[in-house]
Design a protein around this nucleic acid. Structure first.
Length: 675
RNA sequence: UGCCCGAUGGUGUAACUGGCAACACGUCUGUUUUUGGUACAGAAGAGUCUAGGUUCGAGCCCUAGUCGGGCAACCA
């Protein structure tokens, strides 16, 4: 992971430091700790790639640990789906662990804490406990049970464990500091009573540990060296360390928690709650709807594991909150699919094309390259005949000179076939184009080696033979939200930004017969259109293709730009950087320069100063003393203005005087020039 | 109001113990091309949040401020 790039992210720096200061490389160990209460999404993928990537980079084991301390929300179904997703991404965990495996140990340690006077049983209501916690600005009040005798604590705690109390009646609390500025340190809960069967321990337990009490201890039990989590756990670190202090044995590895920013993707939402809302409101068809940022959704959409890993790598890792543009994700998948997708032809929005000089009833079998980007990828057969479908948008009655596609009187090539020339059109009663008639240069068949076949024509079109085409359903997806950060508007729900046109279904698209054999997970490029994959709902006689992502389309871009340019042309005055700004820019580094570079910089400032107005220059007189460069630049520029006949005023004199008195020789020198 | 983080081109990340701000995506040009794709070549785009300070020299160190985020679940 780190070879090839010397630049490390801040977590890798920390690991490097630890290694340098004595941590044995073979002790390195990481973990990915999902709670099995939902499906994994692209944000989790960042964490997965981070932890497993670190493991791969350092040849260190990475545990998969299900943080299953809340039986109310967690289910086996999620465990299975998470495991599938991680495997699909191509990562192998060292051990499959469950926090629930440590329930006994956790309990024993809790008893230990009670005996040491570090924990106590509280029987107050949640409301009361919350109230006593105080607020971030005011200290909390101790619980009346804070000093309950140890024996009594032990007795009640055991009864809690034995199921002698109803859910919610008692909790075990750590005895830390009710006045701590960190709210989490104000006697946090360690255990609560939950009368709910657990997906793994069934009814063995009716008390369950809280996250803070379980997580660090689990890391410790597994001897994880670096426990990486997202930023919102930062303030938990103090507690994490406090709990570890209570049980830590110096001969063992002491895990450290470090935090990184979670990854957001533009034009989507990422929280489990919001994703669930999309599913429940039927905005999408399910968790694996191809528009969902879930791993299973991306997979169904046609994303490859490689592309997701690449995306994670490109996105990087840091501590500031950010929104990564989807274009980076799209780049990652296009790059991968360009190399591996089999090329095929499909017409999604068809119009009939008749080659008038091609014999009726004749069929030719032509050859189509499977993948020009991959050697030895072979070719497949594609049938050609007199009547074809082409894409509606590939023909225009009156086209400009920049339109390379079919129009009357102009030649284009049919991919893998002949060069044709538009002759005439047939319209229906409503005036829509029903048929396009053209003639083919019958000597120009692709691959025939004739001179005609080598001719260069500007445009190439994809097509299917009507007689041979296979009908298919095509599902095209657009971003799910119209807003870049739909959940960033405090006053509005993210649901208000749902894109009503995020799914476009074409029931009658036509694909070449070769695609009849498409299998799930096969990757195709429909030439000139985009990358597609078979949907899981497809059957042998009902093909369904999902569009993963379109090809880059500089033609479409030019079109939309042309439109927006017309509107935007007006407010395009005063372009370019002003002279004074240039002067400032050059000046800033002035004192770092020497020799020729210094000379050039000075000459440039003098030249630029010709276009500088005094009104622009005067504000620079107030430049901080330490910004000598800027003051020198201003002095030089001032010299130019004075030479042009500017009268000295009070501000100018004061500025020159300050320059003369400065410790910087260059500045003094320039000031002398104009004094 | 308390505590804790963060701030670098449009976006995401770099910049080793201070030394002319780099890479990728995106944008724009051009070349090649039987995909208006790919590939290749190139360009534009950043006073590193602000103000002071330390230093020969600050994105980096110090101080104060501004803005953004997190923290008061018997969730994780």
């Amino acid at each position: 992971m780190k070879e090839g790039s010397e630049s490390l992210n801040f977590l890798e720096h920390i690991i490097e430091e630890d290694l340098k200061s004595g941590l044995a490389k073979n002790h390195l160990r990481f973990r990915f700790p999902p709670e099995p209460n939902g499906y994994l999404h692209i944000g989790h993928a960042a964490s997965i790639c981070l932890n497993f990537g670190l493991g791969e980079g350092h040849e260190a084991p990475v545990n998969l640990r299900f943080d299953d301390t809340n039986p109310i929300k967690e289910e086996q179904e999620f465990v299975d789906s998470i495991k599938h997703n991680i495997e699909w991404l191509g990562f192998k965990w060292a051990k499959e662990c469950y926090t629930s495996d440590y329930f006994q140990q956790l309990y024993d340690w809790a008893v230990e804490l009670i005996k040491n006077g570090k924990a106590y049983v509280d029987g107050q209501s949640p409301e009361l406990i919350a109230e006593q916690k105080g607020t971030p600005t005011s200290p909390g009040k101790p619980s009346p049970h804070r000093d309950r005798p140890i024996e009594e604590n032990l007795e009640i705690f055991e009864k809690m464990k034995n199921g002698e109390f109803p859910a919610g009646s008692y909790v075990l609390r750590a005895k830390i500091d009710m006045a701590s500025p960190n709210m989490l340190m104000r006697d946090p809960l360690m255990y609560r009573i939950l009368n709910k069967a657990h997906h793994r321990t069934a009814n063995d337990w009716c008390i369950y540990p809280m996250y803070d009490w379980a997580h660090g201890q689990s890391d410790y039990l597994e001897q994880i060296t670096h426990s990486l989590c997202t930023l919102e756990f930062k303030s938990h670190r103090e507690l994490y360390d406090w709990f570890l202090d209570q049980i830590y044995d110096e001969t063992k590895i002491r895990p450290k928690q470090r935090e990184f920013a979670r990854r957001n993707l533009s034009y989507t939402v990422m929280s489990k709650r919001k994703l669930l809302e999309l599913v429940q409101s039927k905005t999408v068809a399910g968790w694996d709807d191809p528009r969902m940022p879930t791993i299973s959704g991306l997979r169904r959409r046609g994303y490859t594991p490689e592309s997701i890993r690449k995306f994670s790598e490109l996105s990087g890792i840091s501590k500031r909150d950010s929104v990564t543009d989807v274009s980076l994700l799209e780049y990652a998948i296009r790059e991968d699919l360009n190399k591996r997708a089999t090329r095929a032809m499909a017409v999604i929005d068809p119009v009939k094309l008749v080659i008038t000089n091609y014999p009726d009833g004749k069929t030719e079998i032509l050859e189509a390259e499977n993948n020009p980007e991959m050697e030895n990828s072979g070719s497949h057969e594609v049938p050609f005949s007199r009547e074809l479908y082409i894409e509606k948008e590939d023909f225009k009655e009156d086209a400009g000179s920049k339109y390379f596609r079919l129009t009357i009187g102009k030649e284009v090539r049919l991919k893998n076939a002949y060069i044709i020339k538009g002759e005439s059109i047939v319209k229906d009663a409503q005036g829509n184009i029903a048929e396009i008639h053209c003639t083919a240069d019958l000597d120009s068949r692709s691959g025939s080696g004739t001179e005609a076949s080598m001719r260069k024509v500007k445009g190439t079109l994809h097509w299917v033979s009507i007689q041979h085409a296979v009908k298919a359903e095509v599902r095209e997806y657009d971003r799910l939200f119209l807003d870049e950060a739909p959940d960033s508007h405090g006053d509005k729900s993210f649901m208000e930004f749902v894109n009503p046109e995020s799914l476009k279904i074409t029931k009658e698209a036509y694909v070449e017969p070769f695609l009849q054999k498409a299998q799930l997970e096969d990757k195709f490029q429909f030439q000139r259109v985009g990358y597609f994959t078979l949907d899981q709902d497809a059957t042998a006689d009902h093909l369904i293709f999902n569009k993963t992502v379109g090809l880059k389309d500089s033609w479409a871009k030019a079109q939309t730009k042309e439109q927006t340019q017309v509107q935007q042309q007006k407010p395009k005055e005063g372009t370019g950087r002003s002279a004074i700004n240039e002067v400032q820019k050059i000046s800033k580094k002035y004192t770092n320069l020497s020799g020729n570079k210094l000379e050039t910089a000075r000459a440039n400032i003098i030249k630029l100063a010709e276009d500088v107005q005094y009104e622009e220059l005067e504000p620079l007189f107030g430049t901080a003393k330490k910004k000598v460069g800027t003051r020198i630049g201003a002095t030089i520029a001032l010299g130019v203005l004075l030479k042009k006949g500017l009268e000295k005023n009070e501000a100018i004199n004061a500025f020159i005087q300050a320059g003369l008195e400065d410790d910087n020789e260059l500045l003094v020198e320039e000031a002398k020039h104009i004094a």
